[in-house]
């Protein structure tokens, strides 16, 4: 029999697992202040970017996709992802740091770790580290 306190001691993280450009990623649910679809995010003129920090511009393309609203110092910004998969709880012992060679060479600094779920590698991201790579003049342009 497992004592209740033993179960409570099992530290972990509630994560939202999503897919972006063919890569499965997860983010701690405490970083997400809201979820909306892309069409609505465009309507309310949320500042949008992808997981690479590149500004997202609709430009008459498809409006498929979901937007994770992340609170940063200034305002909520929207991270466009392809699909939301599930909310899961991952224990700390299953989360591993990114190997040093990846950490040293990777340009996507939001990836802080990874874990394996159902034989799939899922990258754990810290979306608060995402820098918007918009140029100032683009920053002021409305999302079309």
């Amino acid at each position: 029999m497992i004592a209740p306190e033993t179960t409570n001691c099992q530290e972990g993280l509630s994560v939202l697992i999503f897919s972006s450009e063919g890569v499965k990623m997860a983010v701690g649910t405490e970083q997400i202040v809201g979820i909306t679809d892309l069409e609505q995010a465009i309507e309310i003129q949320t500042q949008l970017m992808n997981v690479y920090g590149t500004p997202f511009t609709h430009e008459g393309g498809t409006k498929n996709g979901m937007v994770l609203l992340v609170k940063d110092d200034r305002a909520a910004s929207g991270i466009v992802v392809d699909r939301l998969d599930e909310i899961a709880f991952v224990t700390i012992d299953t989360i591993q740091l990114i190997p040093p060679l990846i950490e040293a060479t990777g340009r996507l600094k939001i990836i802080r770790g990874a874990f394996i779920k159902n034989d799939e590698m899922i990258f754990l991201a810290d979306l608060t580290l995402l820098e918007n790579k918009q140029h100032p003049e683009v920053n002021n342009a409305p999302v079309t």
């Binding site: 340009r107 996507l108 990836i111």
Partner: peptide, 16 residues
């Protein structure tokens, strides 16, 4: 081999 976005070409990815 799981692709890691944003890495150089000689980094193929991660394995379990």
């Amino acid at each position: 081999i799981f692709f890691v976005p944003g890495t150089p070409d000689f980094i193929l990815g991660l394995i379990n």
